[in-house]
């Protein structure tokens, strides 16, 4: 785990399933798949896709980050009509496991961040911990659903999130 680079399919389907994100508009997801180099059902040759590092370059890195923004917030990528998809994403059920063990944990930024990092990346990315804690503190420290979504936006935009 944590060694392979996610294919566009794994990235999108994985995010929807593991974060319980709404699937939203499939045509937008399909366009993003194409931009990320995986026009599903149309591989470049009978061999399929090259995979690995060929998935990621400076352009597709932004597409990868931005499609997660879309899934988590409904904000469409530039080029689509400006109205956001208003189906709201609720990140709080993700914290169930944490609160089941200790109800107070959901109010402690450090523990929530460690838990979300572990959940999304499979490991505790120490280099990201401090900026994330500063972010929560700068917003008053109270872990509202919007703030947790903000944390997830930051975590899914991390380079490590591209690994599986």
């Amino acid at each position: 785990m944590g060694q392979q680079i996610k294919s566009p399919t794994v990235l999108i389907v994985g995010a929807i399933r593991s974060l319980n994100a709404p699937a939203r508009d499939l045509s937008i997801l399909n366009d993003a798949m194409d931009l990320m180099g995986q026009n599903i059902l149309f591989p470049p040759s009978v061999k399929g896709w090259e995979g690995g590092r060929s998935w990621v370059n400076t352009s597709t890195m932004f597409v990868r980050q931005n499609i997660l923004t879309y899934l988590l917030t409904g904000k469409k990528p530039v080029g689509y009509d400006a109205t956001a998809d208003l189906r709201k994403y609720d990140p709080m059920p993700l914290l169930d496991e944490l609160t089941k063990a200790d109800a107070a944990a959901a109010q402690e930024p450090g523990r929530v961040i460690d838990y979300l990092l572990k959940l999304c990346l499979g490991h505790n990315a120490s280099y990201a911990r401090q900026p994330l804690i500063e972010f929560v503190n700068s917003r008053g420290g109270s872990l509202t659903p919007d703030l947790v979504t903000g944390l997830l936006l930051l975590i899914t935009a991390m380079p490590d999130y591209q690994l599986c």
Partner: peptide, 24 residues
């Protein structure tokens, strides 16, 4: 266009900019 060549999360809330930059 150049607007696509950046992280869209910054437009959700500008408080996300700073930690994003630090990490990326």
């Amino acid at each position: 266009n150049e607007q696509l060549f950046r992280w869209s999360g910054k437009e959700i809330h500008n408080a996300l900019s700073d930690p994003y930059e630090k990490i990326n």
